[in-house]
Design a protein around this nucleic acid. Structure first.
Ligand code: MN
Ligand code: MN
Ligand code: ZN
Ligand code: ZN
Lengths: 161, 161
DNA sequence: ATACTAATGATAACCATTTTCATTATGTGT
DNA sequence: ACACATAATGAAAATGGTTATCATTAGTAT
């Protein structure tokens, strides 16, 4: 039993392996950081965290691994408007991690939510079905984001006034 | 009556003017291109079209004008995943131009749709109200995109198989 | 027409991401 | 354990969309 087996999600490693990808030290460290993250990390965020554990992993490898995982749909890639891509686990051993976002247009804070009401989910499926038929478009995914001001920024705005 | 009054949306020009912005030849040409566009243009797309009419307008001016209009909420700025921002009229004399998108993940084609069903609109408003209350988040806008394969790409995929 | 100042464009800088390529490490078969 | 084929890697350079700089120009109010 080596140290290596202790880091990185075994499930994610399995997914990579069975797609023919090799499990390297760098990838393990990257998987480890991603699977433990509770925010939307940028490639550089991940690189910095990985670097503290494995100082010889390059930023290029981070980008390459992220790209693979996005293609495999294990990771979601988002643009929240701050000039860099941000990543978040899409699938894990526990299943899909589907949720929507509230994005503050002032401070770029992002709030996840997945407490959908039943009616919401039903109508979304209905809508997807209708669109698929009408536009002959095979829908595989959706992105729903609400933009506005978070509590803090809205309070600041009111005070300033 | 000069030639200048014949190009660019008078309404858009009015909006800029009453915010203290000067109406320049470059801006008129940019407004003209944007208001006549029926696709999601990039800054360079706009620059090329403007250039054919006004060869001495620089790309920098295009970027600057677009930025102003996005801040004024006259324009929407989108990221469809092709590495450049794309713009689309958000408000015009006729009112809001609100719609959602179907984005092909293979060829990057984007389909607009705004034939929402009543229930859809109602539930969206309801959802926004619920989220605002729950997360103390002041929602001003939303982005809804469905990803998948357009008719053409889906057909190609089937044949290839 | 004049003055004030916003707007402009050429250029360089910026910076996230990608490409290149010689070197290294991994999985597999022995 | 060893060797082999080749996927993966990292350092460095390139790419490309966007932004900053700054001297010059042009729109607007008077
Ligand atoms: Mn999220
Ligand atoms: Mn559109
Ligand atoms: Zn905020
Ligand atoms: Zn397509």
């Amino acid at each position: 039993m080596h140290m290596r087996n202790r880091i990185g999600s075994p499930w994610l490693k399995g997914r990579l392996r069975c797609c023919g990808y090799k499990i390297t030290i760098g990838r393990e460290a990257i998987l480890d950081v991603i699977s433990k993250a509770d925010t939307h990390l940028s490639a550089e965020d991940i690189y910095i965290k990985v670097h503290s554990m494995c100082p010889n992993i390059g930023l290029t490898t981070v980008y390459r691994t992220l790209e693979i995982m996005v293609k495999m749909r294990l990771l979601h890639k988002f643009d929240f408007g701050d000039g860099r891509a941000r990543y978040e686990i899409a699938k894990s051993e526990e299943g899909e991690n589907h949720h929507h976002h509230l994005v503050c247009t002032n401070c770029n804070r992002v709030i996840d939510y997945n407490d959908f009401i039943d009616e919401e989910v039903r109508l979304l499926k209905e809508t997807e079905k209708g669109l698929s038929r009408k536009y002959n478009f095979k829908i595989t995914n959706h992105l729903i984001q609400f933009y506005g001001l978070c509590e803090k920024c809205e309070n600041l705005r009111i005070k300033r006034k």
